[in-house]
Nucleic acid binder design. Structure first.
Length: 565
RNA sequence: UGGGGAGUCGUCCAACGGCAGGACGGCAGACUCUGGAUCUGCUUAUAGGGGUUCGAAUCCUCUCUCCCCAGCCA
């Protein structure tokens, strides 16, 4: 795994460096990645993963994987499995340090008893509704619960019986006794434990009371000897509570540091909305290649290297920000440019007959597998009288700056010959069905001995040997860079891109692709990077377009279209 | 109108009292058997007003704007 030392520093590293200098935590650095196993990880989590594991590595410290599983009604083993897989795939190793907050339930219970004894916590019989009313508002202080001053003995007794299962869900809570008039609502006697007669994916039915995040998280960090507990901005005003519990308990006290979560243009990053996309049939599942989930990106063909690189490039700060999707695309192109084998594939085929090429003849031409890496070698590509080229590569009436094939024009077929279009064949509807071209035998391999130049080089596939395939072209899931920005009264689904998936079923691939296996990535020359989908089979290969190549001509055309409208 | 945060190129991140810099994007150009890659150049920013200072993005002050918080979710 590479995490170059050139990785730019950030304010968190600065704080840690300072802590090391002053001898806080004896110079140790120990972080954790603490997902709740209630859904699949997305690229926003990737930022946190890279940050936490990256910092540990940079300071030769450790990073734990810890599941924050304090809410049995939402959490499932299925998610812990997928999270483990995703973190591992991202290239990080927690070694033997995979923990669960639920591992610490007994200790948390004991600490809670301790807080009750110290008069710092009490059992409250208010209903959820009453608690809400008593909490006050953003501008008005709260009211103290009438149970706030009940005796330590009574609270102790009640808390014990809560654990024993004597009370129904929601009937009582354990609350911290802090300050109902605090400007910080989190400090208005927050709930520490609630009664939940629910089966937990790890502890089964052992518990019917479960700790709340604020109480569980700081204690988990403390138990694991975490030095720097890195979380997102919305927890900033929970920090006083984090500190309060640890101070009251007088136990080892990590430092919480908050950073801005990742947002990406043209996509969303919320579990709730992912579910709406999946349930609404807008995507095919959590691992749909259009989803910003790690599993979606993986299926799409993104590499861990590219995602890690993105995380490094975007930096870490406290300001809310939206990273341009173009940067993610840059990262995957950069990675795949070095690694992906080049191959020819015609997505939207147009038949070409080389009328002066002998019938029934096939020859093998040499092609380079990766011009960026000569070590990847060469391959043979069959050439014959009938070929396919890309429909887009021919224009009967070529516009200005269109260099590709047109009537009477000569272009190069990559690694093959120069050809000239001599005739356009159409059907009764006027649709072009095939092209007749002549080739120049002297240009075999793609160079002309007389030194004449052509302005375009086209990719092509020999018809007789072509492999048929399905190719899925993806576009952004949303039309607007900010999916939240929709018409008054409409929700984010109104902005879904209806054309985020285009399925092509008649694609022609060069025979080298016949035995491509799921997960393999290729560059289809001139069109983009593609990855063999998990739906793929020998009978019917399926490819996902990971990202297009930069396309100057497409940009020119797009510019013209916009000028006209 | 309570509390907590944040404001630097279009976007993201630097600059920690001393020439506002990098990356992506965009725009030009060079090169090219991928209109790819590569290379070169250009473009554009310190929210606003006061103050301190030889010197302010940075320190002080006032104002403005944006984000988060009223789950027995995390």
């Amino acid at each position: 795994m590479t995490m170059p030392d050139s990785a730019p520093s950030n304010f968190i590293q600065d704080l840690i460096t300072e802590d090391i200098k002053t001898g806080k935590y004896e110079g140790r650095v120990h972080t954790r990645f603490p997902p709740e196993p209630n859904g699949y990880l997305h690229i926003g989590h990737a930022k946190s993963i890279c940050l936490n594991f990256g910092i540990a590595k940079k300071f030769t410290g450790l990073c734990n994987l810890r599941f924050d599983d304090t809410n049995p009604t939402k959490e499932e083993v299925e998610y812990v499995e997928s999270i483990r897989e995703d973190v591992r795939w991202m290239g990080f190793d927690w070694e033997d340090r995979m923990y669960f907050a639920s591992d610490y339930f007994e200790q948390m219970y004991q600490y809670a008893v301790q807080l009750i004894k110290a008069g710092k916590a009490y059992v409250c019989d208010l209903t959820a509704d009453e608690i809400r009313q008593y909490r006050g508002t953003l501008t008005a202080p709260g009211k103290e619960s009438l149970y706030r001053n009940r005796s330590v003995e009574e609270s102790l007794n009640l808390f014990e019986r809560m654990r024993a299962g004597e009370f129904p869900d929601g009937s009582r809570t354990l609350r911290a006794r802090i300050d109902m008039s605090s400007g910080n609502i989190n400090m208005r006697d927050p709930v520490m434990y609630r009664i939940l007669h629910a089966e937990h994916h790890r502890t089964g039915t052992k518990w019917c009371i479960y700790p709340m995040y604020d109480y569980a998280h700081c204690i988990s960090d403390s138990i694991e000897g975490i030095t720097h507990s890195i979380c997102t901005l919305e927890f900033e005003d929970h920090r006083p509570l984090y500190d309060w519990f640890l101070d009251q308990l007088d136990i080892y006290h990590p430092r919480q540091i908050e950073f801005a979560r990742l947002n990406l243009s043209y996509t969303i990053m919320s579990k709730r909305k992912f579910i709406q996309l999946v349930d609404g049939g807008h995507v095919r599942g959590w691992d749909d290649p259009r989803m910003p989930t790690i599993s979606g990106l993986r299926r799409r063909g993104y590499t861990p290297e590219a995602i890690r690189n993105l995380c490094e490039r975007i930096g870490v700060a406290k300001r809310d920000s939206v990273v341009d999707m173009a940067l993610l695309e840059y990262c995957i192109r950069e990675d795949l440019n070095k690694k992906a084998r080049r191959v020819m594939a015609v997505l939207k085929p147009l038949k070409v007959v080389i009328i002066n090429y002998p019938e029934g003849t096939t020859e093998e031409l040499d092609a380079i597998n990766n011009p960026e890496d000569p070590g990847m070698g060469m391959r043979k590509v069959p050439f014959s009288r009938v070929l396919y080229i890309e429909r887009e590569d021919f224009r009967e009436a070529p516009p200005k700056q269109f260099f590709r094939l047109a009537p009477g024009r000569e272009v190069r077929l990559r690694y093959a010959y120069y050809i000239t279009c001599v005739n356009v064949v159409k059907d009764t509807d006027g649709e072009i069905t095939e092209l007749h071209c002549t080739y120049d035998p002297a240009t075999r391999g793609g160079d002309s001995p007389d030194g004449r130049k052509v302005k375009a080089t086209l990719h092509w596939v020999s018809a007789a040997q072509a492999v048929e395939a399905e190719v899925r072209l993806y576009d952004y899931l949303f039309l607007n860079p900010d999916p939240e920005e929709v018409e008054e009264g409409k929700d984010f689904r109104f902005g879904i891109n209806p054309n985020s998936l285009e399925t092509l079923t008649t694609c022609k691939l060069e025979p080298a692709l016949a035995d491509a296996t799921p997960g393999e990535r290729y560059q289809f020359e001139r069109t983009g990077y593609f990855c063999v989908d998990t739906d793929s089979s020998m009978e019917k290969p399926v490819f996902n377009r990971i990202v297009t190549l930069k396309d100057t001509w497409a940009k020119i055309e797009k510019g013209r279209k916009e000028e006209r409208s």
